[in-house]
Computed example of a mutant assay.
Amino acid sequence: MAKLAFLGAGNLASAIIRGLLAHQVCVPEDIACTSKGGETAARLAASTGIAHQPDLAQLLGPADVVIVAFKPQSLAAADPRLAELTRGKLVLSVLAGKKLSTLSRTFPLARNLVRTMPNTPAAIGAGITPFCSLHPLSPDDSALVIRILEALGVCLPLDEQYFDALTAVGGSGPAFLFEFVAGLRDAALAAGLPSDVAPRMALETVLGAARLLARTGETPEALRDKVTSPNGTTYAGLQVLARREFRETLKETVAAATRRAGELSQD
Rank of each mutant, 00 (worst) to 15 (best):
M1F: 01
K3S: 09
K3G: 03
L4D: 00
L4I: 10
G8Q: 04
A9P: 08
A9S: 15
L12T: 10
A15S: 11
I16D: 04
I16S: 06
I17F: 00
R18D: 03
G19H: 07
L20Y: 05
L20P: 10
L20A: 11
V25C: 07
C26E: 03
V27P: 06
E29T: 15
C33G: 13
G38N: 12
G38K: 14
T40P: 08
A46E: 10
S47N: 13
S47H: 10
T48M: 01
H52D: 08
Q53M: 11
P54W: 08
Q58T: 13
Q58W: 05
P62H: 09
A63E: 02
D64V: 12
F70E: 07
F70W: 06
S74T: 15
L75P: 12
A77P: 02
A78K: 14
D79W: 08
E84I: 09
T86N: 04
L90K: 14
V91R: 08
V91W: 00
S93H: 09
L95H: 07
A96D: 09
G97Y: 01
K98L: 10
K98C: 08
L100R: 14
S101Q: 06
L103R: 09
L103P: 05
T106P: 03
P108G: 01
R115D: 02
R115A: 07
T116R: 15
T116H: 10
P118W: 04
A122D: 00
I124T: 12
P130A: 03
S133P: 07
D140H: 12
L144C: 13
I146K: 15
R147Q: 11
I148V: 14
L149A: 10
C155P: 12
P157S: 11
L158G: 05
L158W: 06
E160V: 11
D164F: 04
G171D: 10
G171Q: 15
S172F: 11
P174V: 13
L177I: 14
F178R: 15
E179V: 15
A182T: 15
A182I: 10
G183I: 09
G183C: 09
D186I: 09
G192K: 14
D196S: 13
V197R: 13
V197Q: 12
V197G: 06
M201N: 03
V206E: 03
A210P: 07
L212S: 09
A214C: 12
P220V: 04
T228D: 01
S229E: 01
S229N: 04
S229R: 12
G232S: 03
T234Y: 04
Y235C: 13
A236I: 05
G237A: 08
G237I: 11
V240D: 02
R244I: 02
R244G: 06
E245T: 13
F246A: 14
K251I: 13
V254M: 02
A256Q: 05
T258K: 14
T258A: 12
R259Y: 01
R259F: 01
A261L: 08
A261E: 06
L264T: 13
Q266M: 01
